[in-house]
Amino acid sequence: MIKAGIIGGSGYTGGELIRILLTHSEVAINFVYSTTRAGKKVSTAHPDLLGLTDMEFTDKVNLEVDVVFLCLGHGNSTTFLKTHGFSKNTKIIDLSNDFRLAGDAKFEGKQFIYGLPELNMAQIKNAQFIANPGCFATTVQLGILPLAKAQLLQHQVHINAVTGSTGAGVSPSATSHFSWRNNNVSWYKPFTHQHLGEIEESLGSLQQNFGKLFFLPNRGNFTRGILATAYTKFNGSLEEACELYGDFYSEARFTHLSEAPIALKQVVNTNHCHIHLHKHDDVLLITSAIDNLLKGASGQAVQNMNLMFGFKEEQGLQLKAGVF
């Protein structure tokens, strides 16, 4: 078994990583690092793990682990790696946005690979350092990458997506606490969201000149999941679009094309992405849905780890949604 360390284990993504890795047959959690909760049981921060583990948080880091997951706030992974030198064989999977863009991917001799398996499978398998994609970025990219691969993003793409409150992190804020979020919906960062950069770089790797993206993110009054709709002009038939997407995702273990319209509950608590296509006149509507904490964060991180170590891609990720 390989030894895994988790840095920043008291947040949502750290908690989901622990939950997954506790049942992973090829991994043993060596430590869960938290400077604010050192000496306290992991279940004090993640009560859903009560009875599943007696592990305690620690402020000590084992630099010889086989893989380390960085579940730190954006901008903090760079600082942490400057002060903690892991062994030359340790694989690093970063869940922040520090290394996602091409201009940031090289850091102190480390070359981070963008960890979207449906796009960069071969590179991930041979990588030592992974930049895990953002949650909105994952949802949107999986919805429109097949069009870019076919050079069919020739027109404007309008994207509207709504995310649950866990996307804002575990620390409460003015727009994430219950009294404000409940029975409420609002948009934020219209057309300027930070995930646009990684989306555009991925699309550009498949189609050099693509139509302008107009992205409107929304806050939803639920806890987990992202539902995104994107539409653009498409001259082919619905059947042709379905064939295009079916071919693109024919080898994907976690991304599936649905003939019926999809709902968020189908993917919450899973590492799956569901996609549905709808044609109206000359417009193709693409709906995609993921769990922001799993396929949009911790689940995809484990998926990347499985690929990097040659484990079965779905190992530890055979999770079922609760649709009732």
Rank of each mutant, 00 (worst) to 15 (best):
K41L: 14
V42Q: 07
A45E: 11
D48A: 07
L50T: 15
L50W: 04
G51N: 12
L52I: 06
L52F: 15
L52C: 04
D54F: 01
D54Q: 13
D54H: 10
D54M: 05
D54C: 06
M55H: 11
E56S: 12
E56K: 12
T58E: 13
T58R: 03
V61R: 08
E64C: 01
V65K: 06
V68G: 08
F69K: 06
L70Y: 07
L70A: 12
L70T: 11
L72S: 12
L72Y: 08
G73H: 11
G75Y: 09
N76Q: 15
T78S: 14
T79R: 12
F80D: 13
F80H: 13
K82C: 03
T83A: 13
H84E: 08
H84W: 01
G85Q: 12
F86S: 03
S87L: 04
T90S: 10
K91T: 01
I92Y: 03
I92N: 03
I92G: 02
L95R: 02
L95H: 02
S96Q: 00
S96V: 00
N97G: 15
N97M: 05
F99P: 05
R100H: 00
L101M: 12
A102P: 02
G103N: 08
D104P: 01
A105S: 15
K106F: 08
F107V: 05
K110P: 09
Q111H: 10
I113K: 11
I113S: 07
G115E: 12
G115S: 11
L116F: 08
P117G: 14
P117S: 14
P117E: 14
E118H: 05
M121Q: 14
A122E: 15
A122V: 10
Q123W: 03
Q123G: 00
I124D: 08
I124T: 05
I124Y: 07
I124W: 05
I124L: 07
N126F: 00
N126C: 00
N126E: 14
A127Y: 05
A127R: 06
Q128M: 07
F129V: 00
P133K: 02
